[in-house]
Amino acid sequence: MSNSEEDFNFAYLDEQTKRMIRRALIKAICIPGYQVPFASREMPMPYGWGTGGVQVTAACLQETDVLKVIDQGSDDTTNAVSIRKFFERVAGVKTTENTGKASVIQTRHRIPEQVLSEDQILVYQVPIPEPLRFLEPRETETRVMHALEEYGLMHVKLYEDISINGEISTAYAYPVKVNDRYIMDPSPTPKFDNPKMNFCSAIQLFGAGREQRIYAVPPYTKVISLDFEDYPFEASRAEKTCEICGATNTYLDEVVIDDKGTRMFSCSDSDYCNSQKS
């Protein structure tokens, strides 16, 4: 027996809303990297707390799912804990912190270190879905730019990075081209994670609640980070070792550990770190 809240429909949203989101999700899968508008609902949490991801997860969840929620790679930060509790309560699904055991993983700004499988869905929480937004504020214009595949502006931005900083200094939300067509914002994941999106086995779904957009990348799809021949893309990370598990190949957080400014580096993916430790 599930002990989920009985006054709510399964997974909180009403059926009509789920159908609307599901129609958007199917089109998103069929047009990889294209942002499908959807009628985002008010959720019982503020915008900026992952309302887009929560709606996508709610529309996808089935009774037998095992849900994992991460915030900056960690299972135990506020956003992750509250969303995990929310779905335990309104859908009665099992939850886990173990990446391998999860069938749906909702994430804020990280891709797990462990390689994902065909049976998994990765749901990203997205704040600003439009990669061209800070270059061109008008939605009517960016829409035309996508229609015409007019992406020169994005390359100019990366070029300016090089001319000012000597390298492409964009470190997160690093633009990618999906299936040789649409430029897509991978959500503010560190660029270290970008290569994991290319030819990934899992279904990747992106939800932006405030901006009312859904987009997706099907499994085994080409996702290439933009770069230049003489300045190739580099999946950078802090050149340190995790001080908890000793990993040298993971994305690290820099943590201040006392009031004298002492710092330590540790894996941002808490589940991966724990699994390496034991």
């Binding site: 429909n9 399964f10 997974a11 059926e15 789920k18 599901r22 999700l25 199917i26 899968i29 069929c30 529309a59 996808c60 969840l61 089935q62 009774e63 037998t64 065909e118 279904i203 099907p218 499994p219």
Partner: peptide
Amino acid sequence: DQSKDAARAFRIALKAMAM
């Protein structure tokens, strides 16, 4: 069960289009 069966069916349809 409308809600749960529809969810299961959607996931099958999503998988069909994704693969």
